[in-house]
Computed example of a mutant assay.
Amino acid sequence: MSTTPPTITFHDGNTAPQLGLGVWQVEAARTADVVCSAIETGYRLIDTAAIYGNEAEVGQGIRQSGLRREELFVTTKLWNDMHGHENTQKAFKESLDKLQLDYVDLYLIHWPVPKIGQFVQSWEMLINLRNEGLIKSIGVCNFQPHHLQTLLDKTGVLPVLNQVELHPGFQQSELRHYHHDHAMQTQAWSPLGLGTLWDNPVLQRIAEKHGRTLAQIVLRWQVQLGNMVITKSNSPERQRENFDIFSFELSAQDMADIAALDQAGGRLGPDPELFRLPKAA
């Protein structure tokens, strides 16, 4: 069994590692070192965002790593107060300048912000930037099926992925089915449930059975579902632990037991229909 992340192929033909490092809430002063240690561990996907305030330091960490640019997959995101054609173009170029890169592998609309009602205009600009070669692939975060359908109806172009809150307590099966039916990739943020799962007896039992940590069990569950996963840790030791999930496999019964943990009201983060400007993942 492989000990490195599988590669996911998007519907646009581009590829990405299934497992990546996220830097939400990583202090800017620590970000370059965190990115360097993750790359040393083996991570090749680095996920940041304009609102995180550490794009420049992500770029610094990439340069310090010594890896060739084409060996890395870099994601950043458009924040909610920069929707619309001109604002999106401006925000993207600011992110590119901070990263000091010639292109990003993936650019995402961070939230749909339907009350503003400009996510289609932003999407149109992402398509233009992709066509210019400044972005390899384009996607979204926190979009619901009707938001995704609106993009398809208005532009004929669907995101390669939708990065959403997804963990054992909130499994988003309806949304994942929409993604599957439209050849879109599901990518999980806060895949460990923001610390709410540590005392779950089902997960503890499965972890003991496999001689693994609870975090490793949940991350393994994510990748066996076929999800891409963004994990966050400042600790090199924890980064290595989170990365070491490809040398074991959960049984069908393990997967079924975790599936039973889903809760209709299990969302821990903001509601995409209501969320506008405050800082969030």
Rank of each mutant, 00 (worst) to 15 (best):
231 T>Q: 00
95 S>W: 00
121 Q>T: 03
96 L>Y: 04
220 R>T: 12
221 W>T: 03
152 L>Y: 15
150 T>Q: 12
137 S>K: 02
161 L>S: 10
182 H>T: 10
182 H>I: 04
125 M>S: 11
114 P>H: 09
104 V>R: 00
190 S>T: 13
162 N>R: 14
205 R>W: 00
108 L>S: 06
117 G>M: 10
120 V>T: 11
198 W>Q: 15
90 K>S: 08
136 K>T: 14
229 V>L: 04
158 L>I: 08
149 Q>R: 10
173 S>K: 15
136 K>V: 13
167 H>S: 04
89 Q>Y: 00
180 H>F: 14
195 G>E: 00
219 L>N: 11
137 S>G: 05
207 A>L: 02
203 L>F: 02
160 V>P: 00
144 Q>E: 09
141 C>E: 07
132 E>I: 06
101 L>I: 01
118 Q>K: 15
178 Y>C: 09
151 L>H: 11
193 G>R: 12
225 L>F: 04
185 Q>S: 07
122 S>M: 05
227 N>M: 06
174 E>F: 08
185 Q>Y: 03
213 T>N: 01
209 K>L: 06
216 Q>D: 01
166 L>S: 12
223 V>L: 00
177 H>C: 08
153 D>W: 10
179 H>Y: 13
197 L>S: 00
166 L>W: 05
133 G>I: 05
95 S>I: 09
183 A>T: 09
91 A>G: 04
231 T>W: 03
173 S>A: 14
227 N>Q: 02
139 G>T: 11
139 G>I: 03
121 Q>D: 13
141 C>L: 03
173 S>F: 13
225 L>Y: 07
198 W>D: 12
179 H>S: 13
206 I>H: 08
193 G>Y: 02
215 A>N: 10
201 P>A: 03
103 Y>Q: 11
204 Q>T: 14
198 W>L: 13
180 H>C: 14
122 S>E: 03
175 L>D: 05
113 V>C: 07
209 K>N: 08
114 P>C: 04
155 T>L: 06
